[in-house]
């Protein structure tokens, strides 16, 4: 079982979360070429090692967040909420 530390809910069973795969910066759809867009849609680094990923706490707080996970060992690093810096996640729960 993979325990994913949701920034709001704390450690959650990965089965209670939705896994949304590798985190990529989305190119601007107004200016990018179709090839760039399709690369963004389909191509993946898929490393065996540390990877920044998108997760969605679907049965808990329903927040999207990013987290670094080691795809071989399953280790996880501190989660990051969108638009915030690492470490500044636990503050505004109120």
């Amino acid at each position: 079982m993979l325990l994913v530390p949701c920034p709001y809910c704390g450690p959650m069973n990965a089965a209670d979360l939705s896994y949304n795969g590798e985190s990529h910066r989305r190119p601007d759809p107004k200016t990018c070429t179709p090839e760039e867009w399709r690369s963004y849609l389909y191509l993946r680094e898929n490393p065996s090692g540390w990877l920044l990923e998108n997760w969605y706490c679907s049965s808990g707080c329903r927040r999207h967040f990013k987290i670094e996970r080691h795809t071989l060992t399953g280790e996880l690093r501190a989660p990051v909420l969108p638009g915030r810096k690492p470490g500044a996640t636990q503050g505004d729960m109120k």
């Binding site: 809910c9 069973n13 209670d16 049965s59 808990g60 329903r62």
Partner: peptide, 11 residues
Amino acid sequence: ALGNGIAGVTC
């Protein structure tokens, strides 16, 4: 209060 999957149903 919490959200959790119970018997596979999000509760």
